[in-house]
């Protein structure tokens, strides 16, 4: 109940703010939390980035691409493990996030795959990653680089 009231108030506040500025169709209501990456060994291996993408607005948002100076080919990929325990990875389709919902990019599932690294990912450093949405909006997040054996954003 309390969550309901809070999100209701938030929606009201955001739509009020939206009325004041010429609004994009929803990506301005996207909040990215808990972003992190593991350090890489050199530049030959692809890296990965994880985060939670929240749509706090009242229209769906569609994530259509990524841009980062760190990698020439950043893409959303999805790892899957089938009934025989075999893991595979493939580019994901467009990701739609419904109003009030969030999408987790996390180990073993959806993740930002960073191919063709331009620099080594060094523990303790960070890099900007821009999320592109179908309404033309962009959200840039600074992704901290943790150790190679990190298991989550707080490791």
């Amino acid at each position: 109940m309390r969550t309901f009231i809070t999100s209701g108030a938030l929606t009201a506040l955001l739509s009020w703010a939206g009325a004041l500025t010429p609004a994009l169709a929803g990506s301005e209501d996207v909040v990215v939390e808990g972003a992190w990456s593991r350090a890489s060994i050199g530049m030959n291996r692809p890296g990965a980035a994880y985060m939670t993408i929240r749509n706090t607005g009242d229209t769906p948002v569609i994530l259509i691409g990524l841009v980062t100076p760190l990698a020439m080919m950043p893409e959303i990929h999805e790892s899957k493990t089938d009934a025989d325990g075999v893991s595979s990875m493939a580019p994901a389709d467009e990701i739609t996030i419904a109003p009030g919902e969030s999408m987790s990019l996390e180990p073993g599932g959806l993740h930002a795959m960073l191919m063709l690294l331009q620099t080594t990912m060094t523990e303790g450093e960070s890099y900007p990653l821009t999320l592109l949405f179908d309404d033309g909006g962009e959200v840039t997040v600074e992704v901290p680089i943790l150790g190679i054996a990190a298991r989550g954003p707080n490791d």
């Binding site: 291996r45 990929h77 180990p107 993740h111 054996a149 298991r151």
Partner: peptide, 17 residues
Amino acid sequence: FTYCPDVCPTTLSDISG
């Protein structure tokens, strides 16, 4: 394989844990 960006480092970190 070590060129695996997601599942393998996750498995190795899990096992380390």
